[in-house]
């Protein structure tokens, strides 16, 4: 499978990364280089193989459904480039 410039533009948009048109061709070649290289995985028969989920078999840990932290809104927003009254401020989204 390989990508063309239109696909690169589409995945860049999905990834929310602005890409200059001038960079599309170079990026396309780089991505195709990597995608071509990983294609060797198709040589392997993975029929019936369970995908790996953990290094040792173990049951997923669960914690009690209780509030054990909170009331730290000022700490949560303190790194925001813009905030107001414990809210993040973003450009107008809904008219």
């Amino acid at each position: 499978m390989s990508v063309d410039q239109a696909i690169v533009r589409r995945i860049a948009h999905l990834a929310r990364i602005a890409v200059d048109d001038a960079d599309l061709d170079h990026l396309k070649d780089e991505l195709n280089g990597i995608l071509g290289w990983v294609e060797q995985l198709n040589e392997i028969d993975v029929e019936g193989v369970e995908p790996m989920t953990s290094v040792v078999e173990m049951a997923m840990k669960k914690r009690a459904d209780i509030v054990d932290d909170g009331y730290i809104a000022d700490e949560v927003v303190r790194n925001a480039p813009m905030s107001e009254d414990d809210y993040y401020v973003v450009p107008k989204v809904v008219e």
Partner: peptide, 18 residues
């Protein structure tokens, strides 16, 4: 660019992310 770190501001949210 909303919750921490660098933000390149724009009037449109998606463009701001990008």
């Amino acid at each position: 660019g909303v919750r921490y770190g660098l933000r390149i501001a724009d009037d449109d949210l998606i463009t701001e992310y990008e």
